[in-house]
Structures are given as C-alpha cells and as structure tokens.
Nucleic acid binder design. Structure first.
Lengths: 279, 279
DNA sequence: AAAATAGTGTCTCTCAGACAATATGTC
DNA sequence: GACATATTGTCTGAGAGACACTATTTT
C-alpha cells in the first residue's frame, strides 16, 4: 500500500484523493474479517548441511498424531502477525535447539505446497523454505531436541528400502529442495553457506562434490572459483595446520566474498546428481 | 499420506501397525479443527504474453475497496477444497473472459507473498503464479471483462511517471515474474508457450527479443534452436503466406517439440533486460 | 532492380575439461 | 623415500558470437 500510493499519484493532491482514502477507511471499518475460507498456514524448512562428505537434511520424528512415527521437516503454524521467513527461522531454531539461527545461514523460499488433503486434519497450505548451513557439530544439536528425535539424514539414504517413512508430502519437498540446491550451486555463491570461515578451496570443492555427488577436478575448480570476482577472498597467504592429518601441501585460506551470483558458472559434470541416482 | 505409508513400512504387517492407524483415526475424530490461526489464502496470476513485440502482463483495475482504482493482478480467494493451480486457472479464466484457459498455456508457481500488513483487511498469504500465453486477440478479451477494466500492460510501461499505480505488493510480484520468465527462456523451452502453432523460427526469435528486450542474431539463434533436440519440430517444408506483408523469403514452419529443458542454453546478450532498464 | 526476410557457411576467440608438472607437507 | 594434498601450467576440442554470403519473396 505504501509503495503503490507513492508511485503513480501525487499524494494528497486534491479532495478526490482524500475522499478515496476516507472511503477506504470506512470500508475497512465495516469489513467482515471472517468472510473468507479459513486456511491453516504453516512453514516447513529443509535445513541442509554437509556432514562427512554427504549432503544431509534435518528431519524430526513426529511424536504426535497425525503421522506419528513418521519423519517430517521442522515446521509448524505461522503466527498471524509473523512474517513467513521469520516463522521458518523460528521453527528451525526450535528444532535445532539453538537459541537463534546463526547469522551465515542461507534461507530462501522454496515453494508452496497446498494440495487439498495433504494434511488429514484440515486444509493446510505450507510454505517451504530451504536453509543451508555449515556442518553443525552433532553435540550442539542433540540435547535440546530430547523430546522430539531430530537427526540429519543423508539425502542418499532417503530413497530405497532402509529409507525413513516421510510424513505428508515432505518427500516431494525434500526432492525439490535438493534439486534447487544442486542447480543454484552452478550460478550462485550459495555453496559458501555450507562452509565455515576461514575455508580452503578444497573445502569449497568438497561442498560441490557432496551436493552433486560427483568428483571435480581440483585444478579446474580452482580456476573457476578464482575467476569469479567476489566469490572468495584470499586471506593473505595464511597456512592452516593439519585438519584430518594425512599430510600434503598446506592450503591457502579464504573467506566469503560479497558476490551473490557467479558470472562464470561452475558447471556440474553431465549426469551427476540429476534426479535419477540417490534421491 | 498414501505415499509415505507405502514407503518405509510394509502395510498392515502386524497389530502394532493397525493399532497406530486406529489411534490416528481416534485422534482425527477428536481434533479441534478450529485451533489454528485463520489465514486467508489467495492466488495471484501474472499472465504474460507478447503483444506487438513487447512483453505484456494482464492487470485489472480494482473497482472495489481496498485499493480501489489501483491496478492489480487477477486473483482471489482459494476455495477450501480447491487446489492452488486450479484456483489460479479459474481466476485467469474469469478475468480473461475465456470459458477455460487454453490448453497450451504454461502455468507455474512463482512464489508466495505473505508479509503481514500487505492487505489492510486481514492476514493474507498469496500464492503467485506465472502464466505464459500466446498473443490473445484483444477482442476476445475485452467484452467479458466489462465490469472490471482489464488490459495488458507492457512491462516496460510499469515503471516511470506514466506507470499505473499497482495495488498491494503486486509490483514486487510482477518484477519477480518478469525476472523468472527472462531467466527460464535461457535453459527451458517455455518460450514456446508464447507462440501459436505453427510458428516460424523468426516468430520464436521475436519472443526472445521481446522478453529480453534485446536483438538476437537470427543466424546464431537458428543454430541453437535446431541443435536442441526436441525443442522445435520442422513441419515438412511448408511455406506460409504473407503475414505482415513486406516481402522476403518464406520461412519454414515448426511446431513445439516435447522437450522441456534446453541442453544447449540460449544465452541472453550481456546486459539485456536484467533489472536495470524497463521494469 | 531494390528491399526485405530466411537460411547457410565460416572465422575467431573464449573457455571447459583433461591432464602433466611442480610445491610442500606427513608418515 | 613413498605418499598425500595443493597449486600451477598446458593442450585441445566445442561452442558462442560476429558476420559474410546465398536464397526467395514483394514492391
């Protein structure tokens, strides 16, 4: 409203204009605020991270009906005065047990799932969000989520015989989320959301490899990462100390650049993680 | 529910399983279906088409409060038993005055806009859709929409001094829609939704030029269009008769292929319709 | 013939991908 | 030294973009 009124019309220009505003006030005062179909609106968040070289998503085992015992995305009702992304952040903070979501976490809207009957209780429209975060130390996650069992599942384990049963249409949402993440790594800098600072180019490359489920040539990856202005920023020529242990030349350290899009895309190997394998 | 239950568990395997189903039935029977914040859910559709070489979107001048006199996207409340895309289709059919939306129209979810306060009446969450259609003859559109004034606006005319005032946050939605359309022309076949069948490669190229607001080299465009398996299908060597009139070698005719993605992308000229110019 | 539009062919420069070679650490 | 990892350098083939040229029509 604020935006529109400031656009095409000069403000308070004459009586016709203020007349309109007066009539709008009257209209709103008389408006029956219950005269519409009542929907429940929820958010569901797909929190993805890289753990042990695998792309994982956070799922919570439902301890209440409906779909008790099924695994679901963290989510829940949106408050009537709450913005949608705020609701997603709130639910994620609750389920991960962190007071608030760390600052570097990437959050974007994924899509809205509102098929009638997707929830047996009532008509629910769920706005799904995709969140990307660096590998969280499992101990930080476990204790606060004592009542409801939460854990990160490798997306590769969500299909097949030993896969957990997913509640509602959450399998669809996870599939769309993984697809989105895989695609956006090519032309945006969101891969940075998966690494903590500082990081090495090998760390960043391993993110791509985990998400795409394919090996990348270190040499060519480096070229493209460095060719992209504002993607990664070298931190002097610092040299880190042993991470895993097994030797090798020490890597240079980097921090995240400010760019959000890659002008020279980092293309995934043909036929890597499309839709066929893993999930 | 159907999907999940068939996944991780064998069905009706033992009494524990049927016990769970029984308890879920009981839970649902007792569930208080009013114990959630009541949202209004609407759909808004951005119907885009190419008219006279320009990308246009359908807007309706509101004849009722709130935001009377402002231009809005076709849209409205979703029915409690209505699927979201169905609601978008229904609203589009109403506003365009067509009985039903033509078959070839492309419809995809764009995003969900739910900022508190975006509608002064109540908390409204609106699921926006992007629809792409061939140039509709204006006479087919005009009469049925007599009460509410509807017209196609060139997106280039939606910014600047003479722009119509847009209701609510519809300027945001249109901006996102145009951005989405411009991006998807590069790597999908959605441009086909803008042309009627049969079409010439020049017709298709003009779609790209209109959406991107930049001229393309006919020769290179042809190469990429034909190199993409399943994008366009030549219809023998038919030759059409004068369209505009002014001479020239007759073009070959094509119909839409079945592919939905382009493996060899059609890249837009650097700095064409990004966000800066036009909208 | 001139103009207009469609279609073909060619050249060049960039870049992605493969991979060889070198640097620097651990065991 | 053997091995592991990071970094630098080189080669080649594919493709994008520019553009010259041919083909077929109207005026």
């Amino acid at each position: 409203m604020d935006r529109a009124s400031g656009r095409g019309r000069a403000q308070g220009e004459d009586s016709a204009e203020s007349d309109l505003q007066e009539q709008e006030r009257l209209f709103l005062a008389r408006y029956d605020r219950t005269a519409f179909p009542a929907f429940a609106v929820t958010v569901d968040a797909v929190l993805a991270t890289i753990h042990q070289g695998r792309l994982c998503v956070l799922l919570v085992e439902r301890d209440d009906y409906p779909q008790r015992g099924y695994w679901a995305l963290p989510g829940g009702f949106v408050g009537l005065d709450e913005d949608l992304p705020d609701a997603a952040r709130r639910k994620l903070a609750q389920e991960t047990g962190l007071g608030a979501l760390p600052a570097g976490v990437h959050l974007e809207q994924l899509g809205t799932y509102g098929r009638p009957g997707r929830d047996p209780r009532m008509r629910v429209v769920s706005v799904a969000y995709l969140a990307l975060a660096p590998d969280v130390a499992p101990p930080a996650l476990a204790p606060a989520t004592a009542p409801s069992r939460a854990r990160f599942w490798p997306v590769g384990d969500l299909a097949g015989e030993d896969a957990p049963p997913l509640a509602f249409d959450h399998a669809d949402i996870v599939r769309d989320a993984v697809e989105r993440a895989r695609a956006k790594l090519e032309y945006t800098t969101v891969a940075l959301a998966f690494v903590g600072e500082p990081f090495t180019l090998a760390d960043l490359r391993r993110v791509y490899e985990a998400v795409w489920g394919a090996a990348l040539d270190g040499s060519n990856f480096r070229k493209r990462a460095l060719d992209n202005e504002g993607f990664v920023v070298p931190l002097g020529s610092e040299a880190p100390r042993a991470k895993g242990g097994s030797g090798g030349r020490p890597a240079e350290l980097y921090r995240r650049g400010t760019a959000t899009r890659l002008e020279r895309t980092i293309t995934r190997p043909r036929g890597s993680g499309e839709l066929r394998d893993s999930l």
